[in-house]
């Protein structure tokens, strides 16, 4: 597959702080690329540089074969951005907001109305298009912004925390729309999110921490790299249980957090039956699961994402 975005040796230095320290990565055409990292990792700085909103200190960014430093207008025409915060004009109707966007992006006059109806249909807002946006709910606004981002047929759609501040139900719906979009239009998506379970839909994820990219792969192989399964349990006496586990059993890793013991084992199927037989201290809670992106994140950065 061709790369739609290529980033080479990208750095951004503010007065004394290196916000981005020479990162390299590429995004393939048609994939969903998840871009994760704790606050202050340099994610926003990186995205702003890719979107031509911030001048890099050094390095190279190529999007859709255009240079983000020299061919700003071409790059701007090739991308759509859904910002974290609302950037709609509340005093105008949804249709008017979309019409303005068409004009900003030079969509030919005779195609505007057709495209507007087309994107409104994708996000189910056809019937509400003549209402003022200030009357919209949070979820409707988000959907309208996604529709607007698609109007000029961008090659890459940037979604910066698209579900922040939405209730779980709306969030789930929004992802349905986004996936539908990927299937129908084959647009490349560059996604940042705080909700790591949402990043699972990515084809590949990059984890950024302290200005560097520390891991980049598919969610599945990142989880495989962690190895094995995770067992979480509470017992009547965690300290005694811990001693017993460390003495008698073959685990990859043992950790205690709050009042839960976290075990990492190569295969939970083989481990669990003998484990339960062996452990003398009564178990009060037991949970066996496959690793999630949260575990990956924790393993790579030593932190949870929302610290």
């Amino acid at each position: 597959m061709n790369s739609i975005i290529t980033v080479k040796g990208l750095t951004k230095t503010y007065k004394k702080v290196d916000a981005v320290k020479g990162i390299n990565f590429d995004v393939k055409e048609g994939e969903i690329f998840g871009f994760l990292g704790p606050n202050g990792a340099g994610k926003s700085t990186t995205i702003n540089m890719i979107c031509t909103m911030l001048k890099p200190t050094s390095g190279e960014i190529i999007i859709n074969n255009y240079d983000a430093k020299k061919q700003k207008d071409e790059v701007r025409a090739s991308i759509g951005i859904i910002f974290q915060e609302n950037t709609l004009d509340g005093k105008l109707t949804a249709n008017e907001n979309l019409k303005l966007h068409c004009r900003f992006y030079n969509v030919p006059k005779n195609k505007r109305e057709k495209r507007i109806q087309e994107v409104l249909e994708i996000v189910d807002l056809v019937d509400e298009q003549n209402q003022r946006v200030e009357e919209y709910s949070g979820g409707m606004k988000r959907r309208l912004e996604i529709a607007r981002g698609l109007l000029h047929y961008p090659k890459v759609l940037f979604l910066d925390e698209p579900t922040v501040g939405l209730d779980p139900n709306t969030r789930a719906h929004l992802w349905e729309y986004i996936l539908k979009l990927k299937e129908k239009e084959g647009i490349t998506m560059f996604l940042t999110t705080h909700y790591l379970d949402e990043a699972e839909i990515s084809d590949r994820v990059a984890i950024m921490d302290q200005g560097e990219i520390i891991a980049i792969d598919s969610p599945a192989s990142l989880k495989d790299q962690l190895g094995g399964d995770i067992i979480e349990l509470s017992t009547e006496d965690n300290e005694a249980a811990l001693r017993e586990i460390e003495d008698k059993m073959e685990t990859v890793e043992v950790k205690v957090e709050d009042d839960t013991i976290h075990l990492k084992v190569e295969s939970s199927d083989a481990f669990i039956s003998s484990f339960i037989k062996t452990l003398e201290i009564p178990i009060t809670k037991l949970n066996i699961r496959k690793p999630t992106l949260n575990d990956v994140f924790l393993a790579f950065t030593g932190r949870k994402i929302k610290e």
Binding site: C51, T52, M53, K72, D73, E74, R76, A77, I79, I81, F83, E85, N86, T87, L88, D89, G90, H101, F104, Y105, N106, R148
Partner: peptide
């Protein structure tokens, strides 16, 4: 303040 300037600034308008 209402964020709309972002929509204008990221577009290819000169």
């Amino acid at each position: 303040n209402y964020g709309y300037m972002k929509e204008i600034l990221v577009s290819p308008i000169s």
